[in-house]
C-alpha cells in the first residue's frame, strides 16, 4: 500500500526519485489541504473506494492506514 501511495505522490509531485516514508508529513512534501483533496480523489479512482477527507491526516502513514481500513 505504501508503495502504491508513494507512486501516486511521486507522479503528483512530478518527482520520480522523491524520498517518501510512512513518517513523511504532507507539509514536508509541500502539500496543503487543497493538494490533499486532489490526491485523495486520484486514490479513490485508483482503488475504487470512497475516502472521507479527514483533517487529521498529517503523515503519509496516516493515509496508508486510512485506506487499508477501507479495503
Amino acid at each position: 500500500m505504501l508503495e502504491k501511495i508513494q507512486n501516486v505522490l511521486r507522479t503528483h509531485l512530478d518527482n520520480e526519485t522523491l524520498e517518501i516514508t510512512a513518517a513523511t508529513t504532507f507539509e514536508e512534501l509541500d502539500l496543503d489541504s487543497l493538494d490533499l483533496v486532489e490526491l485523495v480523489m486520484s486514490l479513490e479512482d485508483e482503488f475504487g473506494i470512497g475516502i472521507e477527507v479527514e483533517e487529521t491526516l498529517v503523515t503519509v502513514g496516516d493515509l496508508v492506514r486510512l485506506i487499508e481500513g477501507l479495503l
Binding site: L34, D35, V37, E38, M41, V53
Partner: peptide, 12 residues
C-alpha cells in the same frame, strides 16, 4: 470553493 479539485469533490 477555492480550487477545481474542491469543486469536483463537493459535486461528487
Amino acid at each position: 470553493v477555492p480550487s477545481t479539485g474542491v469543486a469536483r469533490r463537493v459535486e461528487k
